[in-house]
Design a protein around this nucleic acid. Structure first.
Lengths: 153, 153
DNA sequence: CACGAAGGTTTCAACTTGAAACCACTTGCT
DNA sequence: AGCAAGTGGTTTCAAGTTGAAACCTTCGTG
């Protein structure tokens, strides 16, 4: 084995994101960042991950522009990790993953948590995929096209 | 190290899905399954992954009920791997991941591919998160609630 | 019945992970 | 000033995982 294979070079635009966040911890760190966690110690306590692993993951997320470090507001020498715009773009991935989890991974009778709209306190709507003209699309109603295909449609 | 830490027991409904698909290959296998691939050899050729790894991943996906094996339609002794309903539920995760990839991982001037509606051939709409009453929600407009919270809302 | 292809499993070295120990820098306390 | 405790890491090293290649087994075919 030369090295763990990287999807960095892959053509597929699903593969390349996985290079940045496709491991066991990164998305959980991002989730915690959405929940307002910012400090190394907060992430470590929340996730229970080894410090060296957390350190490596944070470095990788920063390197990919998903998190950025900012000076700590309390004036201490340390910094905090906050989501960039690119990182906030993962919101939809997290929502999708959570809805899938809510549907298929919640034990029966388990007091599971779900996402609610802060303003109303009511659960959010399930994600839907729509065509440009608004039609609701299901798995199988889409395909991939490249740049040229769009020209003559 | 006892074993690679599993998120299987985690309370969080983002963590548990990651236990099933949170590695470097599983989502790519699912993506290929959406593209109609069914045979071991097809996946192997498409992904370029080592056969033992592919074998382990397919077994894991089947164990999690994301894929199931069906007898090969050509009557041969082999079987094929097809998505279950649970597996098809990952459609939204893949769409979210792809849209994030399209936005942040496509090289400049690169002939990137994107998802289009089969019927019209036009790109699909970007995913949106909506409140129950239809309001458009952004990152930060949601929080998690548990079962009891909903009662008194 | 030899031969090749499909679909895996086995083997083994390199790489990654995780727990614990260690280190550096600040604070807070006395 | 001196010292313990807290924060934010890095280092070390055993154990676990990954990947390439070799091997095995079961069909389909000539």
């Amino acid at each position: 084995m030369v090295k763990r294979t990287s999807h960095h070079e892959a053509d597929c635009l699903i593969a390349r994101p996985l290079d940045a966040i496709g491991d066991w911890w990164s998305l959980l760190i991002v989730r915690d960042a959405f929940d307002g966690l910012r400090r190394f110690g907060e992430f470590q306590k929340s996730l229970g991950v080894a410090k060296n692993i957390l350190s490596a993951r944070l470095r990788n997320l920063v390197a990919h522009g998903i998190l950025e470090t900012v000076p700590a507001p309390d004036g201490s020498a340390h910094h905090e990790y906050v989501l960039t715009q690119k990182g906030r773009g993962l919101f939809y991935v997290l929502v999708a993953l959570r809805q899938w989890g809510e549907t298929y991974f919640s034990g029966p009778g388990e007091p599971y948590t779900f996402m609610v709209d802060i303003e109303s306190g009511r659960p959010i709507k399930r994600l839907e995929v729509h065509a440009e003209d608004g039609r609701l699309l299901y798995p199988g109603d889409t395909r991939l096209a490249d740049f040229r295909d769009q020209e003559n449609s």
